[in-house]
Design a protein around this nucleic acid. Structure first.
Lengths: 248, 248
DNA sequence: CGCTGACTTGAATCTCTTCAAGACGTGTGG
DNA sequence: CCACACGTCTTGAAGAGATTCAAGTCAGCG
């Protein structure tokens, strides 16, 4: 299904997300769209960035889910975070000499690339765009910090609850979640590798959350029954997401 | 003890660190030094950045140790990482609306500030400097990812061993460590809050490392007796540090 | 000289992991 | 169309790793 440029623009989640941080001018928006090549699709399971490889391009994720991870020699895997519509992929890999982790498409993804080279030009002509990109990277760092907090100092039920609420807020920002539910393409194994738990324990923890009447997962969709209580359980404070949720 | 500008320049750890990534021209180096105000001292225990506050300035850390952390309402604390000579403080806080964690001086620190406003100018006139700054932020992200890996998927002894080796490499880059030892201003409580462990367990783990003949802590100095074996225990791969260690 | 902060150690306890086995749904080839 | 394999989810039981509680040592310091 062919799309015109103005189509991309109207629905572009990157603009939506960056727009939440800075008010970009029409010109800046146009420039940003021009930077990108035509979007293409990556099928689920494919690796977009591979640990140890060299990259000069970065990608904007338009649609779908991806995740960053790394595997120890003995097979233990850690997932660092999930990438959803509006997120940037591979910025770090192209700034550093090599990618130091792997980004894999979790669902079919639509991505658009542009070369880092063009960032130099952008610097000169549209410095605010670079600031916007840095803002995006800064926010990603906040997510990483919060992930450390989750894994380092929270117990299993807090981790899961907190993780779900973070996903809810992030997805809402790009219009991919309802008020209290969203499509969750994760297996329990992925959740385990994200939160530093075993599969079995994730299973038991989900059961507990279900029994408490807080959340349900049905048909790959997460439904939060009581956001207030879940927020209490998780001790969730969305400040770090820097997205003025609610008041928006 | 007064210093001339050329003094700062010669010994400036920021230049040393950024120089490891990009070869900055003389002009770029001079511009970078001009950006900064005169260094001043922050005494140990003082907070440099406070969670929830608004910041427009960023700081270069010239000397000393600081750490980023966050505390849960019930007192559990997580330390996200340590800042040493050459590191940037507060970039994230000034890009986002608020600081989302706290940076505290662990030892007396020497820092120099410059306003984020000037970054716009830098963008136009010296885009490579901004790239260098982004490289620095990217590397910081790598550290955070590795921290997640440590806490999420490694056991206590691996965490401690890996943590020590990371510190060794980072300190060596800015000439603050010998071949196999360095000054370690951390209490066991700080190590515990860094690695997601209890104080007691850190203590036992350090004892184990000592008994294995791998490391010793004497007089606030960490001495690694057998880097090879410690690297094996930790499964340490310095690739993520992006500093071409050894071959340097 | 007594107080405080950091380190140390033992014992009991708990959270989470590991091992094992079964249920369920789905896709595939005979 | 059935049998079988496979991936995911689920649950029980045993065990390991880490925490908590408690108490005691030691050095520095007012």
């Amino acid at each position: 299904m062919p799309r015109t440029r103005s189509d991309w623009k109207r629905m572009n989640p990157i603009l939506r997300k960056l727009g939440a941080a800075l008010d970009l001018t029409k010109e800046e928006q146009a420039y940003l769209l021009d930077l990108q090549g035509a979007p293409h699709t990556v099928t689920a399971g494919r690796q977009i960035v591979v640990e140890g490889e060299i990259y000069d391009d970065i990608y904007f994720l338009h649609d779908g889910w991806a995740f960053r991870s790394k595997v120890l020699p003995d097979g233990r895997r850690q997932i660092f975070g999930y990438l959803i519509a509006g997120d940037v992929i591979g910025l770090r890999a192209s700034l550093l000499d090599f990618a130091d982790d792997t980004v894999e498409a979790l669902t079919d993804c639509t991505i658009a690339s542009f070369s880092l080279e063009r960032l130099y030009d952008a610097c000169r002509h549209h410095p605010r765009l670079v600031i916007a990109l840095m803002w995006s990277a800064a926010r990603e760092q906040s997510l990483l910090s919060e992930q450390i907090m989750r894994i380092g100092r929270r117990n299993a039920i807090e981790r899961v609850a907190h993780f779900f609420l973070e996903l809810l807020s992030r997805l809402q920002l790009v219009d991919e979640a309802g008020r209290r539910s969203f499509g969750l393409p994760l297996t329990q194994e992925l959740i385990a590798d994200t939160l530093g738990l075993s599969i079995v324990h994730v299973n038991r923890t989900l059961r507990k959350l279900r029994q408490l009447g807080l959340v349900d997962i049905e048909d790959g969709r997460l439904v939060i029954h009581d956001i207030g209580r879940l927020t209490d359980v998780a001790d969730f404070d969305p400040l770090y997401l820097d997205q003025a949720s609610g008041a928006d």
